[in-house]
Amino acid sequence: MTAAANLVTACGPRIEFAGIDLTLGRTRILEQVSFNVAAGSVHAIVGPNGGGKSSLIKTLLGQMPHQGQLTLHWPGEREVIGYVPQALEFDRGLPMTVDDFMAAMCQRRPAFLGLSRRVQPAIDAALARVGMLDKRKRRMGALSGGERQRVLLAQGLIPEPQLLVLDEPMSALDEAGIQVFEQLLQGWRQAGTTVLWIEHDLEAVMRLADRVTGLSRQVLFDAPPAQALTPERLLGLFSVHPRSESLA
């Protein structure tokens, strides 16, 4: 963790992955995955496609059964998790505006009734943080990929998360969007939010993460970026296709 992060009181949880095994059908996706995520840190997970990164995230979110121990140590009674997926799959012909999407994701009131007065200030603030407030009446299908990704980032801010899970949030962003994301990341660090971040942009990980785990079915390394992202370790991580074992 960086020196700056050490000065912040974490509001997010510490996470322990201990011996996580995941098997789908007869294929072993994860094998004995063990590492810790420090409270209030920005922790990146890197690795090849098919290496189990998204599957590990889904175990954390309770979407996949697994073996092993997964423990979240929350600092208080408030336990809020935000999640930003890699992409949004939807029918682009739907007459769904940015406001409609935010209403559907961020409030209990049916979206067709519009934004509730209780939630609208938070939605306004979230859209402003990602630079999409002036496009709130545009249809989601008319937005660029980078603009849709900004909207996904905005919905992950409501309610303000203590743990934020990001699945390749930079994949569709343009340069302006990347700057927005980096500002958000610094804000989460300053707030003591725990961020678990899947990312393929290794240069961004080197600059922005406190710690990096290399995952290809198993943990191949877990260290600060300067120690983790060496040519030798990256060659070992990306040169071999993940060994998804079929169980006998």
Rank of each mutant, 00 (worst) to 15 (best):
A3G: 05
N6H: 11
C11S: 12
R14C: 14
R14K: 15
R14S: 15
I15G: 13
I15H: 12
E16Y: 02
A18Q: 13
G19S: 13
D21C: 09
L22T: 05
L22S: 10
T23S: 08
L24R: 10
G25S: 09
R26S: 09
R26Q: 09
R26F: 07
R28A: 09
V33M: 08
F35P: 02
V37T: 06
A38N: 08
A39M: 03
I45L: 04
P48I: 04
P48A: 14
N49D: 13
G50T: 11
G50M: 11
G52W: 05
G52S: 09
K53I: 02
S54R: 08
S55C: 12
L56M: 08
I57P: 14
I57L: 15
K58C: 09
K58E: 14
M64F: 08
P65R: 11
P65I: 04
G68Y: 06
L70I: 03
T71A: 12
T71L: 13
L72N: 02
P75C: 10
E77V: 03
R78G: 00
R78M: 04
R78K: 10
V84M: 11
Q86S: 13
E89C: 07
L94M: 10
R109W: 07
P110Y: 04
P110G: 10
L113S: 01
L113V: 02
G114R: 09
L115A: 02
S116D: 11
R118N: 15
Q120S: 15
D124K: 00
A125Y: 08
A126V: 07
L127V: 00
L127D: 08
A128G: 06
G131Q: 08
M132N: 02
D134H: 08
R136V: 03
R138P: 01
R138Y: 09
R138C: 12
R138S: 12
G141S: 00
A142F: 12
G146N: 14
E147I: 02
R148V: 11
V151S: 06
A154H: 10
P159E: 07
P159L: 04
Q162P: 03
Q162L: 00
Q162T: 03
D167Q: 10
P169G: 10
A172G: 04
E175P: 03
G177W: 04
F181L: 12
L184V: 05
L184M: 12
L184T: 11
L185I: 01
L185N: 00
G187Q: 10
G187L: 02
G187P: 01
G187K: 04
W188K: 07
W188M: 06
Q190D: 15
A191N: 11
G192M: 05
T193K: 00
V195Q: 07
L196P: 01
L196C: 06
W197N: 07
I198M: 05
H200F: 03
E203Q: 05
L208E: 01
A209T: 00
R217D: 12
Q218Y: 00
V219E: 06
L220M: 11
A223I: 06
Q227F: 12
L229W: 04
T230D: 05
T230P: 00
E232I: 06
L234A: 12
L237A: 01
V240H: 15
P242F: 06
R243V: 14
L247N: 07
A248Q: 14
A248R: 12
